[in-house]
Amino acid sequence: MIEIKRIKKSFGGKPVLKGISLDIPEKKATVLIGRSGCGKTVLLRILIGLLRPDEGQVLVDGEDMAGLSRKALFRARRKFGMLFQSAALFDSMTVGENISLALREHTDLSKTEIAEKVREKLDLVGLEGVEDRMPSELSGGMKKRVGLARALIMDPRYVLYDEPTTGLDPETADAINELIGGTGRRLGITSVVVTHDLVSARRIGDRFAMISEGHIVFDGTPEGFQACQKPAVRRFINGSGLDLEERI
């Protein structure tokens, strides 16, 4: 269980998050939505301890990520996997080495067992026979799939997704959405997805939380979001002049 309590974060004196509180339910996909620059990614990075909040707590299974020592923080991160917007694959390593790095670092598995697990995760994300390719040889969609396989390799309880479909064509984005939603449900993973794409959000999310002006302005079901009459939510939904139902 992840509990976010009164998180505040400023950059250069400019407040981005002004006291965010949110509970992330177990084994569900929570989508953090909001306009670009509203602080969604900042919150995601605070969740996994890449950024420290100025105030507040992030309780992961009762442990405050913001208050952990460096060593304890690295231990706590083993519960997480994260897919970055750019996939952030290690460009000096092959696909196989990218995916297996955490296994090589944290387990005593043999080379054969590691290769088997890598194949299994690649299978899960719909790729095969790409272990020896370099990231530069992959398309954007393939990079995201490899990034997802790398995020899942340690069988994490929580997986964080930062704008998983940004920069992809609609067909590939749809396939990635299906993959994220399907994988999460099949493996019983608690997912937190940051996106400003309502189509993506609807495909993946069991629950929506919208950030605006540094606050949570909506927290509820996708249907509740669609029906919400708060001005910030309406502006976001109508931003492109299309209703959510029409867009999907």
Partner: peptide, 11 residues
């Protein structure tokens, strides 16, 4: 973000 990715892998 490759260094951030290392951190998220608990390395």
């Amino acid at each position: 973000e490759q260094i951030d990715a290392l951190e998220t892998l608990a390395i």
